[in-house]
Design a binder for these strands. Structure first.
Lengths: 112, 112
DNA sequence: TTCAAATTTCGATTATAATCGAACAATAAA
DNA sequence: TTTATTGTTCGATTATAATCGAAATTTGAA
């Protein structure tokens, strides 16, 4: 059983979080997790191969944005909403709202 | 007279803004501009050489975060607060507030 | 027209990151 | 114990970015 690194709430840093959320694919993952709650890695709908998705989920986990727990062969991913709201009040809601109507989202959902 | 590119309000994109603000030096610049209003490039207090500062200011300008106007030999830089608040309500205030007590700020102001 | 001040651009270096496919690892089920 | 499922790691490629010092540019002043 592998143990997965998650930073403590106090070790979640602003620039790291902003960097993690500056990637459209990761914004899409965060948006989906926010809407549906917990999801297995493979059930998150993203337009990249699984190894790339794995990399993005790791980035989100190591920056403190998501929690990952192991259940059988699956990894269940969920937002660390509470920790983020305590650490950076208002940040996540404003980003989620902005992403809803963003060109980033449109482009990812309407592949040419 | 050189003309400086500034994106229209509608062309300011979320991921670009988050990426621009994920750099601690640029967070410091934005924080200072927010506090003091307009500033000449050279009067912005940052722990990097002028060519690097120039690069960061350009990144902020091209992402739509700051406005730069020419006055004599100086370039006066200021926040596009209004445009950002319309485009991404609540985003900038939450980032500025988070930066105030951040480790990023502490490290930049307390050089070892 | 020459000089000084403010800032940008250029070239080089170093580092980091997104992406993919293939191989690997862990677990559950047959 | 073999097999299928789920996800990670590895290696390679390609791209982007932060940084600096030196040279160039722009403008105002002497």
């Amino acid at each position: 059983m592998k143990l997965l690194y998650h930073p403590d709430q106090a070790d979640i840093h602003l620039s790291t979080v902003l960097d993690a959320l500056s990637d459209p694919i990761r914004l899409l993952i965060v948006s989906e997790l926010h809407n549906v709650g917990e999801r297995a890695c493979g059930d998150i709908n993203v337009p990249v191969v699984k190894s790339t998705a794995s990399h993005h989920i790791r980035t989100l986990r190591e920056s403190g944005i998501v929690n990952v727990r192991v259940q059988g062969t699956q990894r269940l991913v969920s937002m660390r909403t509470e920790d983020l709201n305590i650490r950076f009040p208002g940040l996540l809601p404003s980003i989620l709202e902005a992403f809803k109507n963003s060109e980033e989202k449109r482009k990812l959902m309407n592949p040419q």
